[in-house]
Nucleic acid binder design. Structure first.
Lengths: 218, 218, 218, 218
DNA sequence: TATGAATGAGTATTCATTCAT
DNA sequence: AATGAATGAATACTCATTCAT
């Protein structure tokens, strides 16, 4: 026997019942997570809709507007969450060692890992909505792109310590960025660079760059 | 056997056919170009609609379906045009010199140039619709991704000539690809790598890579 | 002075005004009724469109989706309403007499009456969308086709009471069904069996069948 | 590798090539047959389109208009073909025996067989487009519904021969029609009367009717 | 804080039909 | 007899958003 198709409203009501049993996560978070989930299932933020988010979390579509001004803002905040996690992971890698060269490598590796583990976020942040990089985050949060500063600081330190040839740290950091991004972006966007291969290329790339930049030791 | 001169009517018919052929080609092209224009103005193919294309070129929406099976097909053919031009430019660069190392550099440079000059196409081809890379083009055209083969051949030749350390040409080509793509993609997607800077980074990157890969001469 | 046909939007606006004056009939019902009306005017559900329904009731097309998942669902629910009324009328006829043979006749007559009075519904239910007969109605409602059970029960009772020759009640009920349906369906689908004639044929058919099935009395 | 979706026109061209190899059936016939094929595949004439027909037979859509005034006419002629075959099969059955009662049964059986074997046509002719029954066929063809006359003649003959009680042959024929149609129509429109069961019910029905109408012998 | 009702705008796509050739 | 180009109208359906409660 064929089933009867449920109205959107009916779907909503069903999930609305379920929702109370889920721990009382702050609604804002719930929305963001649902959005990410949808991005994942649909392979991008292009085709997701606020209604789907609402339906999924068991709230009315209107409710989302109580937490985000509009669709764009919701997407932006998904990106923001990404930038936050991204920054934290880079920071953690930075803090992990005192060896200036190893540290550089670890930061690079953390960058790649983020891309491998959060392709949806990475794509959104660095491949599709580059404009977010310069959008001012609300409430005096630290500027988004400052995550990049970590890389620069690592380069700077390496130069100061004499482990890299002297030069413009900003420029060198930029160079390294393009190398890591190249691997990450092709891994995400094409079928030709699966995980292991991407990791291998990253290591290789770093080695070559280190040599090219005058690294005393690997 | 009589070789009769063509009658007026025959001439007419012939030219009429030619005109229509031409006209048809032109419309197809017009559509493709209008699509690219829309991609540009809207910053991506996500939000473009066939209706807009139609409106822009002054045809009814229906007419587009006489030339493309559906929206997806139109987008795919925009990408195809890109792949064609891309391949030709790489090929031209390859043919430009006999010096294996210089040739490698020229091919890389042609790659970057394509990205700088056709950001819309590049984005579509390599950043958003990587799946097109494996889609079979219609009418027995050469496979899309074979453009990449040019790079591999250039590496191969350089190795054979002893200008690069021996190794797996495919892998080395892949490495170079990530380097160029890194610059190109960040240039396109973020505000941080304007043209001049991108070009500078590319040169620098190539130099470092050359050294790292054992290039005898620069 | 040209009398231009009113656009969709104009119609909509006009009807939209009217609608507030209609008592607050539940919208869902209004939609269903409008649909039936359209079926009637267009001689079938094939060429009716949700937009027309919307226009007719003075709501936007979108609104319909708040009450029905899609077009198919709306049609199905029109049929469901039919099945409900149909079942009730058969049930009422069944309850009307204790004479097992008379009762059988009354049930048959109720069946025919339903078809005569609700040709649109009948056509939909039994002539065009027979698949609905096996579609599970929503919300645990009794299965659609169980209306047929009434007929079977009536036959069964008549057999038990010895008023009909013993036999398979299901089969006999099926036979009677084909007889009544034959009259009803030809009445609805062709111009050859107007009401009175259909009623006459039904009586005649029942008489013959009764005799053929061993009815003790007429 | 995914395939590229073909334009409608491309499909057409392909089939257009194939078509010359098919024997040079008269185009008109080809169209009619293609239409029936489409009805079959789509389970009804509601959703079929002239373009599909054209595409299928490898002619341009326009060509169809050279043979049929419009869609409606094409459908009508499909029905006409049905009526022709129907009439012929009934006629053949009529001619098959001299026993007036057996002949009656054979005609009935031929009727049922037509429905079982050509459900698409039967549905169109007797369940959906009853108006065709009274539409004048073009070119002085014999009126469509005259097929029904065969049944009436058979009844008449039986009465004259004293094999049936005297009465109005037209009315009796009508009664028999409803009986056969009831079985046929429920077989086609619902899942409850598969072939064997329909055949059984038909025989049973005829037997009962014969007895009810005073048949001297079975 | 949350919701239900409602809508205007927009989307891809299909179709029957016409016209000039 | 056949075709290609073209179109206007229509359809189902989705979405972001607003407003009154």
């Amino acid at each position: 026997m064929t089933e009867t198709a449920p109205t959107r409203k009916q779907n909503l009501r069903k999930n609305s019942l379920e929702r109370r049993e889920r721990g009382k996560l702050e609604l804002r978070r719930t929305i963001l997570e649902a959005a990410v989930g949808l991005f994942e299932r649909q392979g991008g933020f292009e085709n997701f809709s606020l209604r789907q988010v609402a339906e999924e979390i068991g709230y009315s579509a209107t409710t989302i507007y109580l937490h985000f001004a509009d669709k764009e803002e919701l997407i932006f905040h998904v990106a923001l969450e990404g930038f936050k996690a991204f920054g934290e992971q880079l920071e953690a890698a930075y803090a992990h060692s005192d060896d200036v060269l190893l540290r550089l490598r670890l930061v690079g590796r953390a960058y790649l890992n983020f891309a491998l583990e959060n392709p949806i976020h990475y794509r959104l942040m660095f491949m599709q909505r580059g404009d977010f990089l310069e959008r001012k985050p609300p409430g005096g949060q630290v500027s988004v792109i400052d995550s990049f500063g970590i890389l620069r600081r690592a380069v700077e330190a390496a130069m100061k310590a004499g482990a890299l040839d002297p030069g413009d740290p900003q420029a060198v950091a930029g160079l390294l960025w393009t190398h890591v991004h190249g691997v990450a972006a092709l891994h995400i966007a094409t079928p030709y660079f699966p995980k292991e291969q991407a990791e291998g290329l990253f290591e290789w790339s770093m080695t070559i760059a280190a040599r090219g930049l005058g690294a005393r030791a690997l």
